[in-house]
Amino acid sequence: MSGTRPSAPGAGRAPLVLVLPGAIAAVLLVLPLITLVATTPWRDLPDQLGSTVVHQALWLSLETSLLTVALCAVLGTPLAWLLARVEFPGRSLLRAAVAVPLVLPPVVAGVALLSALGRSGVLGRPLLDGFGLTLPYTTPAVVIAHTFVAMPFFVLSVEGALRTAGERFDVVAATLGATRWTTFRRVTLPLALPGLVAGGVLAWARSLGEFGATITFAGNYPGTTQTMPSLIYTELQADRGAAQSLSMILLAVSILVLAALRQRWLRPL
């Protein structure tokens, strides 16, 4: 077979200064995943899947991550539209602020959420005094923490899609008598759909793996706030094998969803 494939002459061999670091990077990225799969005690996996704690954590993770994506879509899409289409004072400042949680250490995000929504927080205290509502260490707190860290991925992805699609078709729709709301529903949103899906996947992945902000703001209570990452962390203190099995489950779920979406939606990614 060798020699039958045409190759462009003159480009020359790939230089070692690029090949060597490139290879090290590839090993660093791939090796831990391989060892994770290879050293997992597969025989224990059925038992793990059967345990109530794992069930609860798995379902809580799926439930909260899907709720997070829904919340991102319902709240984040309008925010992305405002950032992409409406001129208002402080727009660039707001865009920068929206991106901050991307680089914020998750633990800091959790502390920030406590300062706002904790029992003695700026919003949390009036909520407690006025309505008897407490958020920290509840399932809604998990969703709020996840949304806080995942929303920027969604908003920036959708805003990018809205900017790429441009305002041209919005103008066309206006000349055809469409109000801004009709234009948004029938033109802007359908054209930005790939961006919405990509943003949704990013937000979902971020939510599924969220640990730091969740454990800080929502705690680690089985059944109410213990998501898969929190459970893995807990198991790691006691039984490394169990932690590894749970990690395998999480890895499998992530890859499955990513593969399913890639078929239809993620070709541009």
Partner: peptide, 9 residues
């Protein structure tokens, strides 16, 4: 506004 002008472009 544009949408109420009744133009065809």
């Amino acid at each position: 506004p544009v949408r109420d002008r009744g133009v065809g472009l």
